[in-house]
Simulated scan of single mutants.
Amino acid sequence: MTHPTPLRPPHAFLRPRVLDLYCHRGGMAMGYHQAGFDIVGVDLDASCAEEYPFTFVHGDAIEYLLAHGHEYDLVHGSPPCQAYTPLNAYNHKTYPDLIAPTRAAMRAVGRPYVIENVEAARPAMVDPVMLCGPMFGLRMYRHRLFEASFPLVPPPHPAHVARCIRNGYLPTPKRPFMTITGGRHSRAWQRAAAEAMGTPWITTIRGVCEAIPPAYAQWIGTQFLALEGRAAA
Rank of each mutant, 00 (worst) to 15 (best):
G183W: 13
A159G: 07
I180T: 02
M140S: 06
R144D: 00
V153A: 12
M178W: 08
M178R: 07
A159I: 01
R166F: 03
T179W: 03
G182M: 12
G168F: 12
F150S: 05
G168C: 13
Y169Q: 14
E147F: 12
R184E: 04
P171W: 14
V153H: 06
I165S: 11
K174T: 11
H143A: 15
H143W: 08
M178T: 02
A159T: 02
P155A: 06
R175T: 13
P158A: 14
G182L: 12
V153I: 10
G183A: 13
I165D: 01
P155C: 11
R142P: 02
P171N: 12
Y141A: 00
V153E: 07
S186T: 15
H143I: 00
R142N: 03
S149L: 07
P156Q: 07
R187V: 04
E147L: 13
L152W: 04
H157E: 01
F150R: 09
F146M: 06
R144H: 06
S149W: 04
H185M: 09
P151Q: 09
L152Y: 09
L170T: 08
I180A: 11
T172S: 14
P156L: 07
F146L: 12
C164G: 00
F146C: 06
F146T: 03
F146N: 08
Y169P: 00
P151G: 06
L170K: 01
